[in-house]
Amino acid sequence: MTILAVAEHDGTQVRSGAYSALTVARDLAKNSGDNVELLVLGSGLDSVAADASRFAPVIVADHPLLANPTADRYARIIANVAKARDAVSIIANSTTFAKDILPRAAALLNAAMAGDVTGYSVGNGELLLRRPMYAGAAMAVVTLSGQPQVITVRASAFPSAGPLDQPGERTVWNVDASTLPNHSEYVGLESRPTLRPELTEARVVVSGGRPFRTSEEFENYVGRLADALNGAAGCTRALVDAGIAPNEWQVGQTGKVVAPQLYVALGISGAVQHLAGMKNSRVVVAVNSDPEAPMFSIATYGLVGDVRQIVPELIRELGK
């Protein structure tokens, strides 16, 4: 039987988080003796399929009607492939792509689902999955009944899978256009261009909180320090709500979850909803004018002071 890893891609390459999901898929397959296959969906997938096949056998669902990741169509195909392959589990990296599509696929398959899994073990022949709840204040251990099991994993909790010695086989999935739903029409995607690394993949993340009152100010302090450290820039909900930073930069319970080597929190109080998105970073630096700010209680290093004074000093020191 098959463990299906659904791989998100950028039109050319598989996104790196998918390789963490593949690590989990391979590990589960090692115990159960199942096969691992990567599923890619989209339109004009030659390059993506070639990239993916370096890591596993690939099922390619390539059709103009799949040009954009609309949940209705993607979920239908994922469910059909899972049925045809008698999949025991469907695994993906926990991004908005997977959060949008996989629960819908689970419903089509009558399947149980656990999201944001950060660890697992096997006990009494059952797969015990660990996932955070209550904004990360608690870790739940859960089991899923029935088959297939749908699982999204946090990429930061698992290493990336390496390539195979020989490329995996590529299988074309015949997309029957007449059976595809037509529930939504894709209009477009608007994002703030940035040359910085993707938040969830960066080694260093510098995040800013409420003291930054305009986009320019955010750039001048948070952005510049991020650049000095070759890092990504993130922020709290406060800045996204105020329109200072785009939503895709929000770190937290309801934004992105990051676990870089170094997380620098500039003027961030340390609300549980923010901590949920960054507390597993290896080293945390807090800079805050309030010596009592809760962020200090989870920081490795703390510096009390005004971010407007300290950030330029940090940039100068880093240049030395």
């Binding site: 908005t96 792509f97 949008d100 894709y186 209009v187 995607l189 994002s191 969830t200 895709e248 992105k256």
Partner: peptide, 12 residues
């Protein structure tokens, strides 16, 4: 609101 930015779709 997606990880990649703001996506717009039309639905019935």
């Amino acid at each position: 609101e997606t990880d990649r930015g703001l996506e717009t779709i039309l639905i019935r």
